[in-house]
C-alpha cells in the first residue's frame, strides 16, 4: 500500500494542515501521521471526519506521499505546492523545502 496523509484547510484561517499523530492538525509535514495500512486508514478517516464535523477543518482528503531521507513529501506537484506554499513566495514557506521537490 502507498503511504498516505490526510490533508485539509483549517476552517478558522484556511491554512493547509495535515492530520498529526496525536489527532490534532499540523502545518508541518514532519509531524503528520503517515498511513500505511488499512487499519490505520480507518482510524485516521474517523478522526478526519470528526474534525470536519466539528468545523476544525474543511473537506479533508487523502494524498499520496513518499518518504525520502527521513522526510515525508507529497507526490503530486499540486500537493507539494500546498504543503510548502506558493513557490513565487519562498518567504511564505511553512517548512524547509526538500531539494528534490523541484519547487
Amino acid at each position: 500500500m502507498v503511504l498516505q496523509v490526510f490533508t485539509a484547510n483549517r476552517v478558522c484561517d484556511g491554512i493547509v494542515v495535515f492530520l498529526a499523530e496525536d489527532g490534532n492538525w499540523t502545518t508541518s509535514l514532519e509531524e503528520c501521521r503517515v498511513i500505511g495500512d488499512g487499519g490505520a486508514l480507518k482510524q485516521a478517516m474517523a478522526t478526519a471526519e470528526k474534525a470536519a464535523e466539528y468545523a476544525v477543518v474543511a473537506d479533508p482528503y487523502l494524498i499520496d506521499v513518499i518518504e525520502e531521507n527521513d522526510a515525508i513529501r507529497p507526490i503530486r506537484y499540486r500537493e507539494r505546492i500546498r504543503a510548502y506554499g506558493p513557490p513565487i513566495h519562498p518567504d511564505f514557506a511553512k517548512q524547509a523545502i526538500p531539494a528534490a521537490t523541484g519547487l
Binding site: 484556511g14 493547509v16 506554499g85
Partner: peptide
C-alpha cells in the same frame, strides 16, 4: 454563503 460575499477557499488559504 461565503461565495455570495466573494470569499473563496483556494489552495493555501481563503
Amino acid at each position: 454563503l461565503r461565495l455570495m460575499n466573494g470569499l473563496y477557499l483556494q489552495l493555501h488559504a481563503y
